[in-house]
């Protein structure tokens, strides 16, 4: 347990974690909502939705909540904090 916590702390410091999201999946499940429609509902530009779906941008906590509200789901259904896949 002690070793695991050390490894996790080391991984945090080395930035090995990444925020993944299921926005694309939830858009599809919500009547194939377009990126523009989601952007308008969340109060951002389409570019921001595109960047988030591509994993290029991690949203602020406020925006994360707004997107979760659009889909009526909780944050952990929409976002996950995972170890980076180094195989890519």
């Amino acid at each position: 347990m002690f070793h695991i916590s050390i490894y996790i702390e080391k991984d945090f410091k080395m930035g090995k974690y990444i925020i993944n999201n299921n926005i694309r999946k939830f858009r599809f499940n919500n009547g194939e909502m377009t990126q523009q429609q989601l952007a308008e509902k969340a109060g951002v530009t389409r570019q921001t939705i595109v960047s988030m779906e591509k994993g290029k941008y991690s949203p602020s906590l406020e925006l994360a909540f707004r997107i979760a509200q659009v889909f009526n789901v909780s944050l952990d259904e929409l976002f996950s904090y995972d170890l980076k896949d180094n195989s890519n």
Binding site: G43, V44, T45, R46, Q47, T48, Y57, S60, L63
Partner: peptide, 9 residues
Amino acid sequence: EPSFSDELD
């Protein structure tokens, strides 16, 4: 053209 700047911008 987007009419506003969001947090990413």
